[in-house]
Design a protein around this nucleic acid. Structure first.
Lengths: 203, 203
DNA sequence: GTCTATATTGAGATAGAC
DNA sequence: GTCTATCTCAATATAGAC
């Protein structure tokens, strides 16, 4: 057993408590306004413990984000491999993303706050590329649908952004309103409403 | 001429420069992270000047928000008085709101950051009621359209939220991406795509 | 690993001269 | 109205004992 492994086993609870407390405080007060003092008090430890585990406030923040973000990215890869008609693939994609967000509301809320709001002095993380990849995935599906006749031939950019709008707003509702006024089934109904406008009139 | 009027004339430039600098810094660093020192330096004055005009940082923030918010509210009232078919009224409503946002991007960005993100220690302003009123206005229009046969009879909650989603995401694009990937005409096309799904099939 | 105690910096805010 | 100089407090971070 290496020294690293020993350390990893020993520090168990404290690390997690610090991460959880920081996440809660970053969300309720913002990265800048949440002080180290508050974080350690909420975790029932003292300041040096935080510096021992994470080096500094930034290190704690990065540690907090990296796990869930990596998980999200790998989920993104898996979901694009889904087979079926374009409409069903779009629905499946959006529902999966929404479910991911619902499972990690706290982290998602923080990501959105940093992405959409001022960085607040938090170290930079490239959320932009991640969001763009999501946009691009939906764009490709819509384009494919327009080409193979499943969607209207003019369902290009505008159609893709309309889908993204619904997904985006549904996600935001998860962490900006309690209880959220949009859930999975409702988002699906909204998307189907949109699709009936997007779908090719073959009747 | 009262004392108030004299004062109002005299302090001209400084007040405005402080407000503008604060708005810029609140947006780029967040309310908590933007320091009074930075604000006054950017305005070319010293700290006591800020305290002279606004009492404190919170006073400055409130002064900054109140003007545009009142203007926005009165615009909301005016736009709901627009006459015409439901579809055109919805389009007019959304285009007007988007235009308002585009004319006050900086304030809108700050409002969204505070509304969606952590309050950062900024004094509370009730944006919720304002947003709800917007949601309610759209809800009423859709409901009316469903009743008078201009929209599908089942175009209720879901249809309204689909409209809101498009408007919401279009607004966000204005202050979260340069250049914005959505403008007025594109939002209109997205809404019309949605409408063709919502509209009653009378053909 | 975790503590007490403290160094150091920068924050918001004010006193008092002009 | 605007300044210089300063107060007070809380922030991040660390030294050093256990």
């Amino acid at each position: 057993m290496t020294q690293e492994e020993k350390t990893a086993r020993q520090d168990g609870g404290v690390r997690e408590r610090l991460l959880a407390a920081a996440l809660g405080l970053f969300n309720s007060k913002g990265y800048a306004a949440a002080s180290v003092r508050e974080i350690v008090e909420a975790s029932g430890v003292t300041k040096p413990v935080l510096y021992y585990y994470f080096g500094n406030k930034e290190g704690l923040y990065l540690e907090l984000m990296n796990g869930p973000l990596a998980e999200f990215e790998s989920s993104l890869k898996r979901v694009t491999a889904f087979q079926g008609g374009v409409t069903e693939r779009i629905l499946h994609f959006c529902l999966t993303i929404l479910e991911l967000v619902r499972e990690n509301v706290e982290v998602a809320r923080l990501v959105y706050a940093i992405y959409y709001g001022p960085p607040q002095g938090a170290p930079h993380i490239d959320f932009n590329t991640l969001f763009d990849r999501m946009v691009e995935s939906i764009g490709e599906m819509v384009r494919e649908g327009a080409e193979n006749g499943e969607l209207r031939p003019d369902a290009g950019q505008d159609g893709a952004w309309a889908v993204i709008s619904i997904l985006n707003t549904a996600m935001e509702e998860q962490f900006c309103h309690t209880p959220p006024r949009i859930d999975g089934p409702q988002m699906e109904r909204m998307l189907r409403l949109l699709m009936e406008g997007l779908a090719a009139k073959t009747a």
